[in-house]
Amino acid sequence: MVVSATTDGGQRKIRRNGSFGYVVPALLLIAFFFIIPVLMLLMRSVLEPTPGLQNYRELLGSTTYLRVFMNTFTVAGLVTVVAVVIGFPVAWLLAIMPDKWSRLVMAIIILSMWTNLLARTYAWMVLLQRTGVVNKMLINLGIIDKPLALVNNLVGVTIGMTYIMLPFVILPLIGILKSIDPAVLRAAALCGANKRQCFTRVLLPLSLPGIASGALMVFVMSLGYYVTPALLGGTSNMMLAELVAQFVQSLVNWGMGGAAALVLLVVTLVLYAVQLKFLNPNRAR
C-alpha cells in the first residue's frame, strides 16, 4: 500500500535507530547503582533476619512506628497546605506583575532555593531556639509571656520544611497562571461575574490542575525529607526517612530498614504515578 509518509517523519525513523548506544553509559550507571541496590535492599527486608514478612508486620503493627507514619503524613500534609495557600497568591502576583519587579522577587526565591540546605536549616534552628529572634520578637510585641518551644518538635519541622518547599509551589504555578489567557477573565467579568465569582468559577478551576500537581509534588518530597526533620524535629518526633536511616545507622537492622524504605518507596512511586497520570499540567493543556 502507498501511504503518504511525510518525509520528515521518515527521516527521523531511519537516521536515528543507531542512537540506543548513547544511552548505554547512563543505563549501566542506573542499573548497577540504582536498580540493583534498591532491589537488594528490598530483598533484605523479606530475608533478614529470617525469610518472611515479619519486618512489615512489626513496622505496620506497632504503635511506635505508627506514630512515625502519623508524624510523617501530618507534617507533609501541613507543609503542603501552608505552602499552597501562601504560594498561590504570590505566584498569581508574579504572573501578572511588571517584569522589573517580578525579576527581583524571582531572584529572592531562587537565591533561597539555591542556598545550601544545611545553611537554611541552621538559620531556622537559630531563629526558632528558645532565646532566638522569633521568640524575642513575640515577647516584645506582647503576644506571649514565656518563650515558646519552636524547635525539637513538629512546629519547627513544619516551619523549616515550608520554607524549603515554597519555591517548589510558586515556580511551577507561575507558569500555569501565565498560560491562562487574561481575556478569559475579562470575558467572565463582562458576562456579569463579580470578582469573587471570577476567582471561584474561572481562575481557580483553570489553575486547579497546576495547584494539585504542585501540591502532590511537595507532599511527596516532604514525605521523604531527612535533613530538616532530623535537625529541627528532635529525636522524639521522628519522620519516616529518619526511621530508615536510624535502622541502618544506629541499629544496623537491615531487615527493618529495608522494610521502612520499601514503604517510603511505594508511597512515593504511587503518588508520583498519580501525578504523572492525572495531574500533569503539560498533558492537561
Binding site: 503518504s4 518525509t7 527521516q11 531511519i14
Partner: peptide, 18 residues
C-alpha cells in the same frame, strides 16, 4: 504534493537515508 516521495529522494541523494 507532500508525501509524494520528492524529499525522500533528495535525502537519499544527500545520504541521510539509504
Amino acid at each position: 504534493p507532500s508525501g509524494s516521495g520528492k524529499s525522500t529522494t533528495l535525502y537519499i541523494l544527500a545520504g541521510f537515508q539509504d
